[in-house]
Design a protein around this nucleic acid. Structure first.
Lengths: 136, 136
DNA sequence: TTACATGCAAACTGTTTGCAAATAT
DNA sequence: ATATTTGCAAACAGTTTGCATGTAA
């Protein structure tokens, strides 16, 4: 078994997920390259191209499990579909309205200042920033 | 016909929308008070309580028309449902994770700084900021 | 009178779920 | 051996659409 596969298996184990055939294959697809953004449907297509037999239902379940385990995060762009992001660190996004794609903005570049007091009894769990770009 | 009703009618006319019974009634519901956030379903319930007969399909159509006309804007929180906002000016939001409600943050309080260069050939069409709050 | 708006039901999209068969431990 | 995971199809929620009927101009 190749080393990179063991890494994926350990990653899943650490997250408390059994390293099943499908989960390992999907994790390799998702985490092989650098950071990326995708929908469930996109991953389904890629899995088919890679001859990995996984049902769409399992992809949804897996992406949600990965998200719960902190391996992915969701990005809310509009109501039509859920996008996932392999970069789980605190960062913001450019959203290309022309083609619906996302590009990361590294946090150290960008700051949100002047935040008013938050309601008592609450904590900030996350700040989402989406810079929507349109073709000129 | 009361004065406030004329205002609504003019507002619709200015937006290029015929002031039909349903559109006038919905506009009064939506724009009577100050700024507010809501889903299509919520407005459907309110219309029923107010004994205004409007089908859910018409509410969806109307909210989308109002949005296209610039009378409303959409707020993307998560994929599960579309939220609308009567405040169409540039402003940001607190999102209460506990109950799914939204509260406006006035723009003059909050600034996004250090934005990196945007890709050539594009313009910023809007910046969305959502501060997610969880109960402590 | 005529173009546009409405209501209903049916279609549709993205997502979740129930359950029998398959699999990891 | 046993608890978990998978795949399928069916269920589901939110939203949109086709078409006959109603209405504003």
């Amino acid at each position: 078994m190749p080393v990179h596969m063991c890494e994926v298996i350990n990653k899943l184990r650490d997250a408390g997920l059994r390293p099943t055939r499908q989960r390992v294959a999907l994790a390799e697809l998702l985490f092989a390259g650098g950071d990326r953004h995708f929908s469930a449907e996109k991953i389904h297509e890629e899995a088919e191209e890679a001859r990995i037999p996984v049902s769409l239902a399992t992809i949804y379940n897996t992406l949600n499990q990965f998200t719960d385990a902190g391996l992915l995060r969701e990005v809310a762009i509009d109501g039509s579909r859920t996008l996932f992001d392999t970069n789980t660190s605190n960062h913001y996004h450019f959203f290309m309205e022309s083609d619906g794609s996302l590009v990361d903005i590294e946090t150290h570049d960008l700051k949100v200042i002047g935040l008013p007091e938050i309601p008592p009894g609450t904590d900030i769990s996350r700040i989402d920033v989406i810079v929507r770009l349109a073709d000129k």
